[in-house]
């Protein structure tokens, strides 16, 4: 009976693996199709779509734009998120629960509502739609993830190390910079990469806060609305490979850092 279950469940697992992988594999394959028409079967293959995309300034600009936004917003999220985490972790004070709740809030608001709220707020603050507005919205949206990851790591910091540093004459700031911060580095690295990917993949905030220049997901969306073509597959595949490789590398990296 148990063996039966086991076999059945492993079939379900592999079916699920197929469900998450097959659509992506098919999409990658379609980018090599030697025809403008999207659809199966694929009779002959070509790499023309890729060479075309790598020479297309529109795509390359969008790609660079997305990367710049991801990096800038991540720097802000990590700075602010780490600061909030240091304030909240292991400290009891009046209003802590409220601040924690508000910190998590951006992660819980459904995408479209968050995008609209940022759009309205950007006007209040006088931020023009475009790169600045996108960076700002991504930064705010990603702060909760940094806070959660850094708080988890901070809770495992041995308090005796800080006490030892203080006893040896370090002031609070130096104790933080030389003991706490190095201890947090793995968490901060992990959170940064998570933020980079979230920002790079984000569509809805970039779409509502963007100016005339599209980010990569917005560009793919715009192209899709005017019709499917293997060119889009080539662009999407480049984005896919990049994000998947960074994601897997980050996963391994943080795992190894946490083990040390």
């Amino acid at each position: 009976m148990t063996r039966h279950n086991r076999i059945l469940l492993s079939c379900v697992y592999w079916a699920f693996v197929a469900y998450v992988f097959v659509p992506l594999i098919l999409m990658v394959l379609m980018g090599f199709k030697d025809s403008k028409f999207i659809g199966f079967p694929i009779r002959s293959y070509t790499t023309d779509w890729y060479t075309g995309v790598l020479q297309d300034t529109e795509t390359l600009t969008a790609f660079g734009y997305s990367v710049a936004i991801a990096v800038l917003s991540t720097v802000i999220s990590v700075l602010v998120g780490t600061w909030i985490a240091v304030l909240l972790e292991g400290r009891k004070f009046w209003g802590r629960a409220v601040i924690l709740g508000m910190t998590i809030l951006p992660a819980l608001i459904p995408g479209i509502i968050s995008a609209i709220a940022f759009r309205i707020y950007a006007r209040l603050l006088g931020i023009e739609t475009g790169m600045g507005a996108i960076v700002w919205s991504h930064a705010v949206h990603n702060v909760p993830f940094v806070v959660l990851v850094v708080m988890a790591r901070l809770s495992t910091l041995p308090k005796s190390q800080i006490e030892a540093a203080r006893d040896l004459g370090a002031d609070p700031l130096i104790a933080f910079l030389r003991i706490t911060f190095p201890y947090l580095v793995p968490a901060i690295m992990g959170a940064s990469i998570f933020c980079l990917l979230l920002s790079f993949d984000d569509f809805v905030r970039s779409f509502f806060l963007g100016g005339y220049e599209p980010t990569l997901p917005v560009l793919i969306f715009a192209k899709l609305k005017s019709g499917m073509s293997p060119e889009i597959n080539a662009i999407a595949t480049v984005a896919l490979v990049l994000t998947a490789v960074i994601g897997v590398w980050a996963e391994r990296f943080t795992r190894r850092m946490n083990k040390d």
Binding site: V22, P23, D201
Partner: peptide, 22 residues
């Protein structure tokens, strides 16, 4: 986890290719 690192738009497009008439 690997496929979940890939963005919303790219994965939506993958479903379009999977389920289209061709």
């Amino acid at each position: 986890l690997i496929p979940f690192w890939v963005g919303e738009i790219v994965r939506t497009y993958a479903i379009m290719i999977l389920l289209g008439n061709t």
